[in-house]
Design a binder for these strands. Sequence first.
DNA 1: TATTGTTATACTCTATAACTATA
DNA 2: TATAGTTATAGAGTATAACAATA
Lengths: 164, 164
Amino acid sequence: MDPATPEPVNVGESIESTLALIQRWSTRAENRRSLHDAEGAALSSTDSWLLERLVASKPIRMSRLAEWLEVDKSTMTTEVKRLESAGLVTRTPDPADRRAVLVSATEAGAVAIDRHRRIAQDVYNTLVGKWNEEDRADFARLLTRFSDELSWVTDAVWRHNESV
Amino acid sequence: MDPATPEPVNVGESIESTLALIQRWSTRAENRRSLHDAEGAALSSTDSWLLERLVASKPIRMSRLAEWLEVDKSTMTTEVKRLESAGLVTRTPDPADRRAVLVSATEAGAVAIDRHRRIAQDVYNTLVGKWNEEDRADFARLLTRFSDELSWVTDAVWRHNESV
DNA sequence: TATTGTTATACTCTATAACTATA
DNA sequence: TATAGTTATAGAGTATAACAATA
């Protein structure tokens, strides 16, 4: 629109430093995750990522879960066992293929993830509580868009390295 | 401005799901961090957080570093030893106080963090490469603003829990 | 006695490799 | 032989507690 092309913003720099901060903050926040579980169910980010999907999907195989979360199958074994001990998921043998195990969220699991998500949303809403409505809407929109792009970032890294 | 108050956007929801994705992505990306180090220096997010500060500051005590990164002093010992083995930082006794240790980044450390940051920025710039300039600028601005707010999030969590 | 840092130990989250059971 | 999952083992990154050296 503007005939004089403006100096392009180095968004990469903002993103890089912000994401570094967020990662850092998450690491610390996890150590305080007891704040999130007056009910006794402490959800790490891995836990919530997994539970959210279990609640949304329905009985699913270990192998599919591992694919989904992009972790090794042995990692899934460990993680699911932990959640099982906490009573948040159940494991049942797949009658159709006796090698396989079907995982699903328990009622307690569904409650825990819901509570977890609600608290997180409250906190974030509080964080941007003083922003004007337009900024809030823009941020939500752009963040969502960014998260969509993020799905492709691995490819981007590969392309970068091939070209170096 | 608008007399009819519009439906407020649930930014918290966007933020919550995006940050979960980012965390998740980081976890996976870290396992591929070799992509970032053709030169042999693999930087985890903790590494880069620490190095960035060391390069910017100059010889600094373990205790100050631990405060800064908000980790335990024993964690700092472990982390700094790892970076020292990799040749990215040096530790020298503080002549002014023989209990203390001064940590600084080596030349290799400075190179590694610079390279790391540059690659990350490139990747993110590629990610938003197709956005129009206005969206890019807005995103950078709002993200930076958000990261400023984030510094206060711990307090927000506390306030939330107190009110529950 | 208080402060700086290290060591010992443990827990989470991840991976690889070797293994078992089933297909 | 190939696939689904578990177990054994290891490494990163964190914490707490006990300790040593210095102030």
